[in-house]
Amino acid sequence: MFRKNIIIKITIAFIITAFFSLQLNAQRWDVPSNKKAKNSYIKFDNNTAKSGEEVYTKNCKSCHGDVGKANGNKTLNPQPPDLSSTLTQELTDGELFYILNTGRNAMPNFKNTLSEEDRWKVISYIRSFNKKYVQVLSKTDPSKSKLVKINMNFNAATNKMNLSVVANEASGPVVLKDAEVMLFVSRYFGKLQIDKTIRTDKDGNATFNFPKDLPGDSIGNLTIVAKVSDEIYGEIESQTKLTIGVPTDKPSLTAKRAIWNVLKLAPWWIIITYTSIVLIVGLFLVLIVRNLFRISKIGAQQ
């Protein structure tokens, strides 16, 4: 009897533990070890926390709520945690940065919408709620990012875009090895990523497959944006205009007469209908007023 009870209890305990550990696993972030160790090149202080708060209010608050008040959006699944909680605070800066960069489920990624500086400032704001936190600064020197030059070469025969990344140090050119590179094309709303995020090879080169059918402006110009992220040199962004898109010359939506356009460019059918109705009603009213004068005149004559 006693033994049976024990077995049941152990089984129940096991099931519960298994269930909770599954739940926890579902919420845990799987962050690669090299990302986990990443640190901020910005020193966290009151000023960075303050500007981080502004970024937080605009981009994060609608789901996570006010930090420390646990008033996030309860309708989402999984629920966005309060960022002052231990669950969040025991993550490394690198892990937080990774979460911001990749996003998951309902959480969007902020890699392309917030600058690296702003992303670190948000983390600075989140850390300001943790009294025990001690910052480890990265060895990245953002002032050195100015030295880096990104060269873009497009091969029309193979449709490949080749990038070479070189830092012009005083001691001579240094190629950036194993740096993260992303390629984008500017569109109406934001940037469109081309191919995948890759790393430079030992010569500082990265090659992307470039699509043939991207619509450009009237002569086929595309604005190409390359983003390089390096341990030492930080984030570097470079833009060029290349005539490698499909020439597209669509008139603007407000160029022709349309219902949404200004009064001068109203559709003819509305102008004609409206004006003729007003004119017809007006004409009848004039006729009636004339009749009134006629009545008065007849009476005056007799």
Binding site: F284, N291, I295, K297, I298
Partner: peptide, 28 residues
């Protein structure tokens, strides 16, 4: 009263005006 004397001519114009307005007011 617009010098109303109730002559047939006045009545005719008045009735016609009322008729026009009665029709015009329906679509408006």
């Amino acid at each position: 009263s617009l010098n109303w004397i109730g002559s047939d001519e006045q009545k005719k114009i008045l009735n016609k005006s009322v008729l026009i307005l009665s029709i015009l007011i329906i679509p408006v």
